[in-house]
């Protein structure tokens, strides 16, 4: 007993939120099945999956809004309620309160000190381009504005962990960029963690770690690049090479299988960007076009969805 206690203490210190063997049944079907994932301090994690894969259900359970059917989501050994702030897919805003009042109400509920609250609300309204609408009632705002206000509502809580349920998917690029800078600042200065639920590969690959959810199960946890490799390597196409000696030199130089068709050479490599750079440096004048197709995270997800590659076994076996 004396030897196991310090070990357990260390384990709990490392992870902020632990989801263990979590399953959830809604409407007669299992929305989540045997989910195991840990969120550490100062980490930005993406939960990547298609629509209907169970992202929202997981976000709600991780935020302590819904109870799982079995398993648990624990915050350093305690309940998650009041620790992880969730920006919900369906904005949780009072329609008859103004944008400012909505943020103020939730900041007060999260016990943010009044002075900090005022400063933070002004900053977030500015960040999400809502300063001109701070006195407008929520029901008067457009869908896009409501989604931005919902993200601001989650951030104003000043919680150690913030979850964004699919809200970043349709954000304008300039606002997304500003928000991302803000998240990175919060991670660096306050060691805060963020979990981004998304169906867009471009957002998922911005995160240091992704967990792929498919049909309510976590099928992969790791780096985005590792997941992308499930869809195969980068494809490089070199076009219209008129000089036959150049063609044969390129073929000889590459240690991969090169296919030739209508004067085009195509091959697959793990690091296409570097390869294209090297080839352009050497044969730039002889190549009329270079095409690099890098598999996206969506391509990898397609592979998982069609069963082309078995899901990684980081999840425990299916329950009896």
């Amino acid at each position: 007993m004396t030897t196991t206690l310090p070990k357990l203490y260390t384990l709990l210190e490392m992870s902020l939120l632990r989801v263990e063997n979590l399953s959830m049944r809604t409407g007669g079907t299992w929305a989540l099945w045997d989910i195991n994932i840990e969120i550490s301090e100062g980490e930005i994690t993406a939960i990547f999956g298609r629509s209907g894969s169970g992202k929202s259900a997981l976000a709600r359970v991780m935020g302590g809004i819904d109870e799982p059917t079995s398993g648990s989501a624990v915050w350093n050994g305690r309940e998650t309620i009041g620790r992880a702030s969730v920006a919900l897919d369906r904005p949780a805003l009072a329609p008859d309160l103004t944008a400012y009042e909505n943020l103020d109400m939730f900041a007060a509920l999260w016990r943010v000190p009044r002075r900090k609250r005022t400063r933070e609300i002004s900053f977030l309204l500015e960040l999400f381009k809502l300063s001109d609408y701070s006195a407008a009632k929520a029901r008067q705002l457009s869908t896009g504005m409501l989604r931005r206000l919902e993200i601001a509502r989650a951030l104003v809580a000043d919680a150690p962990l913030t979850l964004f349920d699919s809200l970043l998917d349709n954000l304008e690029p300039d606002i997304l960029e500003k928000l991302w800078d803000h998240l990175l600042t919060l991670r660096r200065t306050e060691n805060k963690s963020f979990v981004i639920f998304t169906s867009r590969g471009k957002i998922a690959e911005m995160c240091s770690r992704i967990a792929v959810i498919h049909r309510g199960r976590i099928s992969f946890v790791g780096r985005p690049d590792d997941f992308r490799r499930l869809a195969g390597e980068d494809m490089v196409v070199l076009g219209d090479i008129t000089n036959p000696s150049v063609k044969s030199r390129i073929k000889d130089q590459l240690s991969v299988v090169v296919q030739e068709e209508d004067g085009f050479l195509s091959f697959r490599v793990s690091n296409g960007e570097r390869m294209v750079g090297d080839l352009l440096a050497e044969y730039g004048s002889d190549l009329s076009c270079v095409y690099l197709k890098r598999p996206s995270l969506e391509d990898a997800l397609e592979v998982v969805a069609t069963g082309g590659i078995p899901v990684m076994a980081n999840v425990s076996e299916e329950k009896a």
Binding site: I65, V86, R111
Partner: peptide, 8 residues
């Protein structure tokens, strides 16, 4: 849902 997510 938002209220229940808060520490109340």
């Amino acid at each position: 849902d938002g209220v229940l997510n808060a520490p109340v």
